[in-house]
């Protein structure tokens, strides 16, 4: 049943594709820049924080800003999976209570709109590498499998966060506060090298590995094997959790929202 739900939901790609796209349009309807408002605000943040932190950490801006930029782009994608995962079913109440659609449609819809937003933001990356004259070469292509793995994990997390949040309404605000904390303890605004001997602080952080497998290739380096192994382990855990929660509680979602 759960597998059929995922399959039938995926087959309805026209529906979730349009729903996800509408979600973004709705936010920026009648505004001049439209979805590029996202790009503009992220760009401003990257530049402002880039200059400030390069100064604070006494690192050359040429070195720091591209690192911060790619890190922030990837983090924004990952963070929205967590912080918006809680509302994917509760926000779709009017659909769920009126028509039987595979529940996975709401999951695909949210992942799709996050990918679209990421794509808009990604323009900044091209701007930054051009400005600083960085050419990551073919290594950058390694970011693609990394990104796929990251989106897969985000989607799986969305499934169980969404279902559990429909039942326990305290989860979304709880996650939001945790996400903020994670942002500061994960090497995004600071380089992991700054940890020196205490590098384990980054290594035990699952988010670090998921970010590394996308960020490092974009900056022209090959990620460590440990990053990949950790990412695969995280994927396995997420797969198990999502599978368990989805098969067990899928049919209760309509009752909970």
């Amino acid at each position: 049943m759960a597998i059929a739900d995922l399959r039938d939901g995926f087959a309805a790609w026209r529906l979730w594709g349009r729903m996800g796209w509408n979600d973004i349009l709705q936010r920026y309807r009648r505004s001049l820049l439209g979805p590029f408002w996202l790009t503009a605000s992220t760009a401003i943040m990257v530049v402002a924080l880039g200059f400030l932190y390069a100064e604070l950490f006494k690192t050359p801006i040429r070195n720091f800003l591209p690192f911060l930029c790619t890190g922030l782009l990837v983090w924004n994608l990952l963070a929205t999976f967590l912080s918006e995962g809680g509302i994917i079913f509760t926000a779709a109440e009017s659909y769920i209570k009126q028509v039987r659609l595979p529940y996975s449609i709401y999951v695909y819809r949210s992942s799709w709109s996050k990918i679209i937003i990421f794509a808009h933001n990604f323009v900044i990356y091209f701007g930054v590498v051009t400005y600083f004259g960085i050419w990551p070469g073919a290594t950058a292509l390694l970011a693609i499998p990394g990104l796929i793995l990251l989106v897969l994990n985000g989607t799986l997390a969305t499934i169980y966060i969404g279902i559990l949040s429909a039942r326990f309404r305290d989860i979304p605000p709880l996650i939001n506060s945790v996400v903020q904390l994670i942002f500061f303890v994960t090497p995004i605004m600071w380089k992991p090298e700054l940890l020196h001997r205490r590098v384990y602080i980054a290594d035990i952080n699952p988010f670090f590995h998921l970010i590394e497998i996308v960020r490092t290739p974009l900056l022209g380096n090959v990620p460590d094997l440990k990053n990949y192994l950790a990412a695969l382990l995280i994927t396995a855990i997420n797969l198990g959790l999502a599978g368990l929660v989805f098969t067990r509680f899928r049919s209760r979602i309509a009752y909970w929202i």
Binding site: N22, Q26, R29, S94, Y95, K97, Q98, V99, R100
Partner: peptide, 16 residues
């Protein structure tokens, strides 16, 4: 095949 018509508002986006 089932067509439920329980709510007029379903899937109606007021801005399109």
């Amino acid at each position: 095949t089932i067509s439920p018509m329980l709510d007029i508002g379903l899937g109606i986006d007021p801005d399109i």
